[in-house]
Design a protein around this nucleic acid. Structure first.
Lengths: 148, 148
DNA sequence: GCATATTACTTGCGTACGCAATTAATGTGT
DNA sequence: ACACATTAATTGCGTACGCAAGTAATATGC
């Protein structure tokens, strides 16, 4: 158990590093977005009102609140997201997905899906991919805000 | 297939982010090492002569060669690694694990193993962990230099 | 209802990283 | 053997990040 646990974790780190390289390159090439930005927008897309507070986004993306603030600035200028203050609580500044952002992220998601399919295209059965998705889902199941 | 592929990838990214946080904190607390440094040394430990060239390390760790150069400096000063020129090829400067480094990394690996076991301790059977390790191993199988 | 604690967000600062240019050494073609 | 390409490593530079401090607003305790 100890042995396979360690192996699983190390393989997971290794796999993530490879996939990040691959997805970063491909996403950056097609859209103007990096992988980080794409995940940022995807989290907004699946949120209740297509919006999240900055701290909430930070938790979901596992980055600091200051990074969320700074990431949002260029995307605001591009019109992908907008700042939306909360009338009830003046401290809150939601990041909300615009129509433009909606279109872009839908497109990015399609690219994402295509890339994901390619990863498993050779040497993987549908059942195996599903099994992997399930197991990784279990690994994340004791937390909030897992994406899609 | 497309659907579960996307889910698998997204879950993998999510899982990695959480595990990185957890392992970074715990490793940094026990030894003086960060997660990155621990993986750095673990790659050396399992290498043929406990040594690797900088470019080789960079490929295995999925970081740039310049980062390897810069990471090595403080670890050299701590005596964990040493610089070892190649007599055949004066361009090569191996990073080699010292005795001290060997001891530290063995210790770090034990901590790593303990943490990994904790991750799966609740709600996971040995078979499931093994299955996850296998599937992730498959995902990495078309590349060189996978760790342990 | 007022003082204090907590929360959301921003900003300054230091650090870590990748890219591209540089240097030095080895490989290749003729 | 010599010119040129390739490779390993380092360094300058710009960028992205986290942490901690600062600011403003809301929540809590008395």
């Amino acid at each position: 158990m100890t042995q396979s646990s360690l192996t699983a974790i190390l393989h997971l780190f290794q796999a993530q590093a490879r996939l990040e390289e691959r997805f970063s390159g491909a996403l950056g090439g097609v859209h103007g977005l990096g992988l980080k930005e794409a995940l940022f927008l995807m989290h907004l897309q699946q949120a209740p009102l297509r919006r999240l507070t900055r701290v909430d986004l930070a938790k979901r993306l596992h980055i600091s609140a200051s990074t969320v603030t700074r990431m949002a600035v260029p995307m605001e200028k591009l019109g992908l997201v907008a700042r939306q203050p909360d009338p009830r609580d003046a401290r809150l500044a939601y990041v909300v997905l615009t129509e433009t952002g909606q279109a872009i992220v839908t497109d990015a998601r399609a690219t994402f899906e295509r890339l994901a399919t390619e990863v498993f295209r050779d040497r993987w059965t549908e059942q195996e991919v599903g099994q992997l998705a399930d197991l990784l889902g279990r690994l994340n199941s004791n937390q909030i805000g897992v994406l899609a």
